[in-house]
């Protein structure tokens, strides 16, 4: 309401120059406040990212020497299960037979193992559908229709190379980055 302003502030300087300078200052001051507010958002958001101790604890060593063919062990990598399996000759044969089959996420067994250690299959024990732990690593668990892993949550079947063959999961069980630090020890991460 212009008229009330005028009564309240009868001596207001209204030259063009004054108005412009005033507007500029106000805009600058409000912008500075806005920039400050945005800067505060940065630490408030990044504080939720993994802390230093969590990031540091992201490598795992596993000794594979004691795993018999057909057996698997569960290790922990980044607080998630890690399956390390020594495949039997039949399992390798089955996997290689399907290397050229119609796969949802085409990969050969060789792609998923390290050279010279073709019988050691290292995968995350995390179903690529919604993150449940598939069965098949422990003795006596259901291995699914393809003899590998079977996720009971929503019925995803993985073959002996951990490749998705049936069910809702979109991709093969993830093979994490790892290397053999000796003939019998792998380091994951």
């Amino acid at each position: 309401m212009a008229d009330t302003t005028a009564t309240a502030t009868p001596d207001m300087a209204t030259s063009d120059d004054g108005i412009r300078r005033r507007d500029f200052l106000d805009i600058a001051a409000v912008s500075a406040a806005g920039i400050g507010g945005l800067a505060v958002v940065y630490p408030l958001v990044t504080q939720m990212a993994p802390s230093k101790d969590v990031l540091a604890a992201s490598s795992t060593e596993v000794d594979v020497s004691a795993i018999e063919p057909g057996q698997a062990i569960k290790a922990v990598f980044r607080k998630q299960p890690l399956f390390v399996k020594r495949l039997t000759a039949e399992e390798i044969a089955a996997a290689e037979r399907d290397d050229n089959a119609a796969l949802r996420d085409p990969q050969t067994l060789a792609d998923r193992t390290k050279e010279g250690h073709g019988d050691i299959l290292v995968t995350m024990g995390v179903c690529t559908h919604l993150g449940c732990v598939p069965l098949g690593a422990a003795e006596g668990e259901v291995k699914g229709e393809y003899g590998g892993y079977f996720c009971p949550c929503h019925g995803s079947h993985y073959d002996t190379a951990g490749r998705i063959r049936k069910g809702p999961a979109p991709t093969n069980l993830e093979v994490p980055e790892y290397e053999f630090t000796s003939d019998t020890v792998i380091q994951v991460g």
Partner: peptide
């Protein structure tokens, strides 16, 4: 440094706004 800058701006802005109603 940023706060100092922003506070000086706030001061000048405040002065401008109040200039109209301050007694001459």
């Amino acid at each position: 440094i940023f706060l100092l800058f922003a506070t000086v701006l706030a001061y000048m802005s405040k002065k401008q706004i109040w200039a109209a109603v301050k007694p001459k």
